[in-house]
Design a protein around this nucleic acid. Sequence first.
DNA 1: CTGTTATTTAGAAATTTATCTAAATACTCT
DNA 2: AGAGTATTTAGATAAATTTCTAAATAACAG
Lengths: 94, 94
Amino acid sequence: MAFADTFKALSDPVRREILMMLRHGSLSAGEIAAQFDMTGATISYHLSILKKAELVRETRVKNYIYYGLNTSVVEEIMLWLSELKGGNEDDKEV
Amino acid sequence: MAFADTFKALSDPVRREILMMLRHGSLSAGEIAAQFDMTGATISYHLSILKKAELVRETRVKNYIYYGLNTSVVEEIMLWLSELKGGNEDDKEV
DNA sequence: CTGTTATTTAGAAATTTATCTAAATACTCT
DNA sequence: AGAGTATTTAGATAAATTTCTAAATAACAG
């Protein structure tokens, strides 16, 4: 279930920071890695988890790979949280 | 930062199921444990993580401990996701 | 106080996760 | 084709997580 993957992906602070970095637009793997005190391999690992969770999409341009947010999955998570909060099945406020 | 704890707490399927069980009202540790094929000790461990994340509150009644949802923390998470989705640079700091 | 029930804590084992280094792949440019 | 850069993959390791059993606490009833 991709849903569980999404929560798992969000559970790591590095991955959350990556997502926040992508709010304003796509960045290449290298640009992302440059912001962290970790090897590129480690960032690649985190990106693979975000990708598997469908929280990011990749686009290849020249010999760069750009990563961008996929907000539709974020919406799904918000829906789940909404349900949790709702308790009574009446409401569905956004 | 309790915020990180919250995401971590949400990353486990058992804990998410516990939260869903609490939507319609509080349940005792034993009532919760009865729904899972795990020992009470394990459920107690999960409850302690949810409690540390402030996703649940406990109330002692007789020799039972009741657990109930704390929805305000859920709102905080939704706010974070909102920010992510929004991409608005006007309010990036929390 | 004694005994019973509900729950948590402690300690240990199995699994998963995050990280590194080194090597491999992929793509570009001349 | 060959060199150079960007990124990923493989393999290893340390740390964190989940789970269990057994023991400890806490609260109640008689």
